[in-house]
Amino acid sequence: MVPVENYLALSGILFAIGVYGVLARRNAILVLMSIELMLNAVALNFVAFAVFMDPEQITGAVVAVFVITVAAAEVGLALAIVIRYFRMRATSNIDEAAALKW
C-alpha cells in the first residue's frame, strides 16, 4: 500500500500547479481549468486522509462527491459568464476585464 505521504505530496504538487495556472494564464477558460486542478487536488487530499485516518474511511469520499458536485455547478456558471463576457467584449482574456478599479 502506498503511504499517505505520497498522496499528500501529489495533492500538494497538483494544487501548486493549479495555482500557477490561475496566476499565469490570461484566458478565462484556462484559468477555470486550473481551478479544476486545484479542486481535484483538494478532493484527493480529503479522500486520502479519510482512507488512512478515518475509522469510517468513507467521509472523505462523501466530501469528494460534494466537491465534484459544487465544481460542476461552478464550471457551468463560470463558463456561462465567460460566454456572456465574450459576446460583450469579443475576448476571453481576464486581464482585459479591468473596470473594477479606481
Binding site: 499517505v4 505521504e5 499528500l8 505530496a9 495533492s11 500538494g12 504538487i13 494544487f15 501548486a16 500547479i17 495555482v19 500557477y20 496566476l23 482512507v51 488512512f52 485516518m53 478515518d54 475509522p55 474511511q57
Partner: peptide, 22 residues
C-alpha cells in the same frame, strides 16, 4: 509563487508524522 507553495506543501506532507488510525 507556485514552486514555493509546492515546496511548503510537500515539505509539510513529508515531514509531518501522520497518525495511522486505520
Amino acid at each position: 509563487a507556485a514552486i514555493g507553495l509546492a515546496a511548503i506543501l510537500v515539505a509539510s506532507a513529508v515531514v509531518t508524522t501522520w497518525p495511522r488510525l486505520v
